[in-house]
Design a protein around this nucleic acid. Structure first.
Length: 894
RNA sequence: GGGCGCGUAGCUCAGUUGGUUAGAGCACGCGGUUCACAUCCGCGGGGUCACAGGUUCGAGUCCUGUCGCGCCCACCA
């Protein structure tokens, strides 16, 4: 045992003030920053590592970021306290298309486009933006209490991660897994770039289905009618397809039809992909502008005629419609077809239309030369690791979602016709006779390695998710063999939103396996979306976004964190209401004030410390034993819940313990011992010190600021609660829990009876108490029992036989305990009869339920002995209660 | 078309491997100037756990189906 130590006056002084979260939090984050505890310890235990999902540097942090900060910081702080070297790598994402988009919007406000600036000046502008907002993100993460290792802060466009991008590109290219080709891709005419399948958002919209008649060549005026949702694409039609078994069209197979307007002669082909039940069973085939038609066109060797330019206008191949925007062209084509008598009918039709994820423009499928990653070989091992459990999903149902996607994956279009992002590391020899293509890990290539001639780099950049997919190792120094990489790869938990399971999580898995030969993380924990109080998605246009730093400034980051943590179930969306945040703030206030109460005791009784903190007392008093055991129980439960990723439930249990047990019962009960013997006061103080200090540790991962501030004022050991060890399990004192629990029940029953009988709350009354098997315990806790039930100290009598209440008394039962409260002159006999009747009914119902159980032979023989025993006790207790209460009711007469 | 989630008190939601009388916060009613806290304390009302079957000694929890809401995936033009 070391010195006897109490908090200094200065430390206590802080706690003398009212709880002010903003002031407390301001005072801590710089100190934390400098403490060094955010960096992993040197312990040789296995490290616990989280790589932060890097926020997009496109603006301020939103509430979704606050959720991930809360969860990840909770995990990190908990593991840090357990002694694991804990590393949380922060970062930020350049956000390719979204990053370029925000700066373009800023330019638009000045009446400029990026083309007015040119590539270089535009990139300078984007870098200005990134540098401005990157710092803000960092500041905002700090305000939320994020204990990440700032010395390892990474940005996707930093030289390290950029080099990793080039290395991976080259690796995959050399392996034949990256190729360049002309494919049908989704094109955003506004962003003027290709998109991956994932970046296209489909929405059902009301449109029309147009029925067009194409005359069959040499068939005596016979026409074939096709149905389409995009009539303007008929200008690019190069065939008509029917199902091979469709009798209606059998005689036309192999013939040709004449495309109206353009007069093109195109064949009628058969294809299994045609659904005879849809429309007329005949499909116009536009191989250059529809994914289905692309495949049909390939199978039948049809020409690919592109009728649309990259800016979304019709091109020369569209004949008279050249230069028109697609929407205008659609109307014009329909009008022309109608004039020609080729429009048979127009029906309303709902169908899914693809939109650009970033700017919501309708995307056009068209053929374009792009870079792709061949997915099949990469997906295979990524499927296996999810199946064999090398990667665990929380909640588990996302395993299936992940697998379903990877098992049906298409090649990934990775080139983007943007300026902001990682430039594709490919250089083309400008000498057409040479034509060498150079893929290099160097930042620049000056000349063709084959012919020494001039080279030009591919103008395009990579999909932003390409660099994100490398994040678990590019942040650790790969491709160099760094100590960080050796020690911290793979990470432990990948905590992120389920909305980017495919975009990000799946890609990290296959890149991790391909490049590192090892999964990038062992557990994927997925959180949901934070919605507003009405359940709507937050968006700037709706104006319902809640700024986390603003909420933190008002209620405290602790309150916001606690709300998010205890409200959110993994994988489920949650609603955030400020009312809820307010009650979390109230909880913080409660604990703050409980500490102020405790500090007064420590002034009178110095607290003994050992290397762990306050020494665990070995009290004999029931209340002390009870609260110590409750602490142990809650610790065991909270630890188990945290280990099972049930973070919210753990938080709720800790809160419940602090508020409903420590504050409402232990502290209240302790008041009666104030001014007693110094020895007894010392035990109360020691118990308070121990329980409070340990409870604050349990709460620390949830409410780091509050707990650090409180902890400093408590008797403690060490520099910071951040590295105070997590609690060791300790055996419960079941006897104390049961006995004090019975005392609580009795007090509640007495309070209830008093309230219902209208006894003034402040009035000290008398009581005869029969304690049953808790008689001794009650007698030893007479002071607490009397004080809590507002029974006069000298008016509490313990009786050996059940009290037979006289006329002017209330009779109270609680379990097997019975109390008679003499209240001469104030007992309202009518009301008391009513109360007794109600109590009898309750006891009777209880008895009936127990009886029904025990009458069931199957229950008695098959249920576990302990469960049966509980029912037996219930029966015995309720049966006695009924008898006592009925006797009393009879004695009162009518 | 396939898959997933949700439906529990007036509201927002917890409820873990099935096991006493299903919980919390807010709201509501009654009462409280006890020197930690009115950002508080005490007491109370309020639920056929969407519906219908099934498994089980026992179901909010497991299974099947139905209804309602939401989400994801999918190349029927």
């Amino acid at each position: 045992m070391v010195t006897s130590m109490n908090p200094t006056a200065a430390e206590r002084q802080e706690l003398a003030k009212a709880y002010d979260p903003a002031a407390i939090e301001r005072g801590l984050y710089d100190w934390w920053d400098e403490s060094g505890y955010f960096q992993p310890s040197e312990s040789d235990r296995p490290p616990f590592v989280i790589v932060m999902p890097p926020p997009n540097v496109t603006g301020e942090l939103h509430i979704g970021h606050a959720l991930f900060v809360s969860l990840e910081d909770l995990m990190i702080r908990w593991h840090r306290m357990r002694g694991d070297p804990s590393l949380w790598i922060p970062g930020a994402d350049h956000a390719g298309i979204a990053g370029q988009w925000v700066v373009e919007k800023e330019l638009a406000a000045e009446g400029l486009t990026r083309h007015d600036l040119g590539r270089e000046a535009f990139l300078d502008r984007v870098w200005d933006w990134m540098n401005r907002y990157r710092g803000r993100i960092r500041e905002q993460l700090k305000l939320l209490g994020a204990s990440c290792d700032w010395s390892r802060f990474a940005f996707t466009m930093d030289p390290g991660p950029s080099r990793a991008v080039r290395h991976v590109f080259k690796h995959l290219y050399d392996k034949g897994l990256i190729y360049r080709g002309e494919r049908l891709i989704s094109w955003c005419p506004r962003c003027r770039t290709a998109l991956s399948d994932l970046e296209v958002v489909y929405r059902d919209e009301a449109s029309s289905l147009w029925y067009l008649a194409y005359p069959v060549e040499d068939a005596g005026g016979e026409k074939i009618v096709v149905a389409t949702t995009r009539p303007e694409t008929m200008l690019g039609d190069t065939g008509v397809a029917v199902h091979p078994d469709d009798e209606r069209y059998r005689h036309l197979i192999g013939k040709h039809v004449i495309l109206p307007i353009l007069g093109r002669r195109i064949p009628v082909v058969t294809d299994e992909a045609v659904d005879p039940a849809f429309g007329t069973g005949a499909v116009k085939v536009t191989p250059a502008h529809d994914p289905n038609d692309f495949e049909i066109g390939r199978r039948h060797g049809l020409p690919f005629i592109t009728v649309m330019d990259l800016d979304g206008t019709m091109n020369a191949a569209a004949g008279p419609f050249a230069g028109q925007a697609t929407a205008a062209a659609r109307a014009a084509v329909v009008a022309e077809l109608e004039r020609l008598g080729a429009l048979v009918e127009t029906k309303p039709h709902q169908h899914a239309i693809g939109h650009c994820q970033r700017c919501d423009t309708v995307v056009e499928p068209l053929i374009s030369k792009q870079w792709f990653v061949e997915m099949a070989p990469l997906a295979k091992p990524a499927v296996e690791v999810a199946k064999d459990g090398r990667i665990e999903f929380v909640p588990d149902r996302f395993r299936g979602v992940y697998l379903n996607w990877l098992e049906n994956i298409h090649d990934w279009c990775i080139s983007r016709q943007l300026w902001w992002g990682h430039r594709i590391p490919v250089w083309y020899c400008q000498d057409s006779a040479c034509g060498e293509i150079t893929v290099s890990v160097e930042e620049t290539v000056d000349q063709c390695p084959a012919c020494g001639g001039a080279v030009e780099q591919d103008p395009d950049v990579l999909d932003t998710w390409f660099s994100s997919g490398l994040w678990p190792f590019s942040t650790l120094g790969w491709p160099d063999d760094t100590p960080d990489l050796r020690r911290f790869y793979p990470s432990s938990v990948m905590e992120t939103g389920y909305d980017i399971l495919f975009f990000w999580v799946a890609r990290m898995v296959f890149f991790g396996i391909e490049i590192m030969n090892e999964v990038p993380f062992h557990t994927v924990y997925l959180h949901g979306t934070v919605r507003d109080a009405e359940g709507a998605r937050m968006s700037k246009t709706k104006g319902n976004v809640q700024d986390p730093t603003e909420i933190a400034a008002t209620y405290g980051a602790d309150a916001l964190r606690f709300t998010l943590l205890t409200q959110a179930a993994p994988g489920n969306d949650m609603r955030l209401s400020l009312q809820r945040v307010e009650s979390a703030r109230n909880f913080a206030n409660k604990l703050w004030n409980a500490t102020r109460f405790a500090l007064r005791w420590f002034e009178r009784s110095p607290i003994a410390l050992d290397e762990e903190g306050p020494v665990r007392p070995e009290p004999t008093a029931l209340a002390d034993r009870w609260i110590l055991s409750r602490l142990d129980t809650v610790n065991a439960e909270a630890t188990r819940l945290l280990e099972s990723h049930l973070y919210g439930e753990a938080g709720r249990q800790i809160q419940d313990f602090v508020w409903s047990e420590l504050c409402d019962w232990y502290i209240e009960a302790a008041k009666v011992r104030q001014g007693g013997s110094p020895d007894d006061e010392g035990i109360v103080a020691a118990t308070l010190a121990y329980v409070l200090e340990r409870a604050v540790r349990l709460l620390h991962p949830f409410m780091p600021f509050l707990t650090e501030a409180i902890w400093r004022a408590l008797p403690h050991q060490g520099q910071s609660i951040m590295v105070a060890p997590w609690l060791e399990p300790s055996p419960r004192d079941e006897e104390a829990e049961e006995a004090f629990g019975a005392l609580i029940d009795l007090v509640r029953s007495i309070r209830n009876a008093r309230a219902e009988a209208g006894v003034e709350p402040g009035r000290w009354i008398a009581a005869d108490v029969y304690g049953g098997r808790f008689a001794t315990a009650f007698r030893e806790s007479a002071g607490e029992l009397a004080f809590l039930a507002r029974v006069g100290k000298d008016q509490l009598r313990f009786v050996e036989v059940r009290p037979e209440a006289g006329g002017d008394e209330l009779l109270v039962v609680a379990g097997e305990a019975v109390a008679a409260l003499p209240l001469t002159g104030i007992v309202d006999l009518v009301a008391e009869r009513e109360r007794l009747t109600k109590e009898i009914a309750e006891a009777q119902a209880e008895q009936d339920r127990a009886l029904a159980q025990l009458d069931n032979k199957a229950f008695v023989s098959r249920a576990p002995q302990a469960v049966v025993e509980v029912q037996r006790r219930r029966l015995a207790t309720s049966r006695e209660q009924v008898v006592i209460l009925q006797e009393r009711l009879q004695a009162l007469g009518s």
